[in-house]
Amino acid sequence: MENLKDVLTDIFGKNGREILSGICSGKNVNQIIQNLSPNVRKKSAQIRELLDKEISQSAVIRLNICLKLIKDFDDSIEHLEKEIFNYAYGNHKQEMEILMSVPGIGELGAATLIAEIGNFKDFASGDKLASWLGLVPNVYQSADKYHNGRITKRGPKGARWILTQIAQAAARTRNSKLKEFFNRKKKSIGHAKAIIALARKIATIIWHLITNDEMYEDETGYVKGEGQRRKIVETEIFSVDERISIISEIFAIVEKKKPDI
Rank of each mutant, 00 (worst) to 15 (best):
A171R: 13
D241N: 10
D122S: 15
K257P: 00
G109D: 10
E236L: 12
L67S: 01
S101E: 08
K71I: 07
K185T: 05
E234G: 00
F123T: 01
L8F: 09
T9C: 10
N64I: 00
G109R: 04
K145G: 01
R229E: 14
Y146I: 00
N28H: 09
L4H: 00
V233L: 14
I162A: 00
V7M: 06
I210F: 05
N183A: 06
A171K: 13
C24W: 02
V233M: 12
F238G: 00
N138W: 11
W161V: 12
L20W: 01
T235G: 06
E249R: 12
F120M: 08
A167Q: 02
E236G: 05
E97T: 04
I114A: 02
A45I: 11
K53G: 07
K128T: 06
E2T: 11
C66T: 13
E226T: 13
K82S: 15
K193W: 02
E255C: 07
G134L: 03
D75A: 08
S125Y: 05
K179W: 02
K5S: 14
N39H: 08
K177I: 01
N148G: 09
V29I: 15
A170Y: 04
F181P: 02
T211H: 07
S58G: 03
H208K: 08
P156V: 06
F120G: 00
M215Q: 11
I23G: 04
I261L: 12
T204R: 15
P259N: 08
N212M: 09
K145A: 09
M1N: 02
G126K: 02
K224S: 02
M100F: 04
A199C: 05
I98T: 05
L80M: 13
E18G: 12
C66Q: 14
R184H: 11
L108Y: 11
E78S: 15
I162H: 00
V102S: 06
F238I: 06
W161Q: 14
S76L: 13
A252Y: 09
E54S: 15
N28L: 07
F251Y: 14
A203F: 01
A110C: 04
Y216P: 04
F238N: 07
N138I: 11
G118W: 01
Q141A: 09
W132F: 15
A197P: 02
E234T: 12
I77E: 15
I65E: 13
E78T: 14
E214N: 07
K27F: 13
D127V: 10
A143G: 07
E214G: 02
G26Q: 07
I47T: 05
L80P: 04
L69C: 10
K53W: 01
P137I: 06
I114N: 02
I247P: 03
Y146F: 12
K224D: 03
A252F: 08
K82L: 14
E236P: 04
L80F: 13
S239C: 08
D52P: 01
E18H: 11
L113N: 05
S239E: 09
H147F: 15
S188N: 12
D74I: 00
I33E: 05
E217D: 13
R62P: 00
F120T: 00
N175P: 01
I47S: 04
